[in-house]
């Protein structure tokens, strides 16, 4: 299952036409302690680069953007009870939402793991 990354520090796992989206370990480290996550409602239409979710750390609220176009199929309900999952397992249990992809060709514009690592090293 290929995993892509954005310059906004989201990761996206693609399984057929469905993708799972979260924020990277680098991002959670920058944010610090996560105290609240607002995930999009099922059925919400997302467009690439548009607001998708909000993550709140102790110090600030940050927007999470949609990495590609699509329709939300599921938000991670576990984050409501335990937002700190984003800190402890950002690229696993701490996923934000799943979406049905509208245009898989958009994935070609995203980074792979090696490219994302190089991107972070340059920050």
């Amino acid at each position: 299952m290929p995993r892509y990354y954005t310059e906004e520090h989201e990761w996206i796992d693609v399984d057929g036409d469905i993708a799972t989206v979260g924020i990277t370990d680098f991002a959670q480290g920058q944010l610090g302690d996560i105290v609240f996550v607002e995930v999009p409602d099922t059925g919400a239409e997302l467009s690439q680069g548009g607001d998708a979710a909000v993550v709140e750390s102790v110090k600030a609220a940050s927007d999470v953007y949609a990495p590609v176009d699509g329709t939300v199929t599921e938000g991670n309900g576990a984050l409501e009870e335990d937002p700190a999952l984003v800190n402890s397992d950002p690229e696993g249990e701490g996923w934000f939402f799943r979406m049905a992809l509208s245009d898989k060709s958009q994935l070609d514009g995203l980074m792979n793991a090696a490219a994302y690592k190089a991107f972070c090293d340059d920050l």
């Binding site: 924020i23 993550v55 110090k59 600030a60 609220a61 940050s62 927007d63």
Partner: peptide
């Protein structure tokens, strides 16, 4: 991902 509120 972008911080919504600037603190500085």
């Amino acid at each position: 991902m972008t911080e919504i509120e600037q603190t500085g």
